[in-house]
Design a protein around this nucleic acid. Structure first.
Lengths: 198, 198
DNA sequence: TCTCCAATGTTGTCGGCGCTCACATTGCCA
DNA sequence: TGGCAATGTGAGCGCCGACAACATTGGAGA
């Protein structure tokens, strides 16, 4: 990855990819612009030509995460099964995504990025797409329910699953704490509680 | 707060209090040992006589948070009403605590502190007390339910409330997003989902 | 094809941070 | 009362994000 020309060619993308790797490896705190620049064979100041600051780079990483999650939700909606089964699949696949990329998930759901006013432009679209996809699945699953019911369900469903993931990532669900429940018992209970028991 | 003697007298406690204030004001990221030392009229190296590193100080702050939360749970369990009502009160009071001290809540539930091996000693007891208090309330509320049922309920209840708080603190529940639900509608829906609808 | 400028990258520097080490001071106990 | 362990100091290391002045270059327009 050494540099042989003065201009890198695609530094912006390379930075986002390298930052995403660092997030996967050690969480957002592990992202150092100096390290990234060095690993890409570029000077410390170069990243600032493409991102106004460190948070802007992290926002770009989070944006890719939301794009991926939106795809997961869309795929669940396009899968077979009845409506509620598709909602369950969406939640299960979301959980798998969070476990596959915990650092990215923390960045997406526990960082301040989305609390900024205004929301970073790169983030706005993917974020909106993500929740529109989920809303579509919910609407398809319960077409006859009143809108307010679906909105309540959306709040509680997301809360339950996100809370489970946050607590799990924080290491709260040790086997001793959960016993006699197995891990799969807990997951099942969470999905049931989130989507509604069958 | 100027220093008139060589020895401060109670620097350890003063540091925890000052750090707690900083956490309340700007979250755990806002805690700078140098700032704290300066504000207490003490040199930059002094804090290290009482806390091996920054995380140890934050752990002490979090420990006080868990002590406070344990008290909240105990108070709810000692309040009037039937069992389920006391569980609801515990969850409502927990939410109020999180909103009153969001920085502290984030430190307690979103930091890595409790994922360490071993758990920081100052933290172990208050953390354990907190969940024993909650478990007691749950046992009192549903004395005839099978233990596994209560354990499932504990997982889903905590997940739902914590998830709601995390998403709320991350600014996800804007009025436009929630409409036509009001904020109180959402809170009610979350409590119902967490504890079980009446 | 040449020229020039906007985009991109570099070097030097600043202030802030956590943390460590050698040294200074002092309360307290034997 | 003497001395030691606890506590506080000052200097300094390496890391970080960010900025400013300067260097290089690719490509659009003549």
């Amino acid at each position: 990855m050494a540099k042989d020309t003065y201009h890198h060619g695609d530094l912006a993308n390379a930075l986002v990819e390298a930052a995403a790797k660092a997030v996967d490896a050690g969480g957002a705190e592990a992202v150092s612009l100096r390290d990234l620049a060095a690993s890409l064979g570029v000077s410390r100041a170069a990243p600032y030509r493409h991102f106004v600051d460190r948070d802007a780079l992290l926002a770009a990483v989070a944006a890719r995460g939301f794009e991926e999650l939106a795809g997961i939700y869309r795929a669940a909606d396009a899968s077979g099964g009845d409506g509620p089964a598709r909602v369950r699949k969406a939640m299960r696949d979301y959980m798998a995504f969070a476990w596959r990329r915990p650092g990215l998930h923390r960045l997406m759901f526990e960082s301040d990025l989305l609390r900024r006013e205004p929301i970073p432009p790169v983030l706005a679209r993917p974020y909106q797409d993500t929740y529109e996809a989920l809303w579509g699945t919910l609407t398809n699953a319960y077409p006859d329910a009143p809108e307010a019911w679906r909105k309540r369900r959306r709040v509680t469903m997301l809360s339950t699953v996100v809370g489970f993931l946050v607590l799990d990532e924080a290491g709260r669900f040790t086997p001793e704490w959960a016993q006699p429940l197995t891990r799969e018992d807990m997951i099942e209970a969470v999905i049931d509680a989130a989507v509604g028991a069958p």
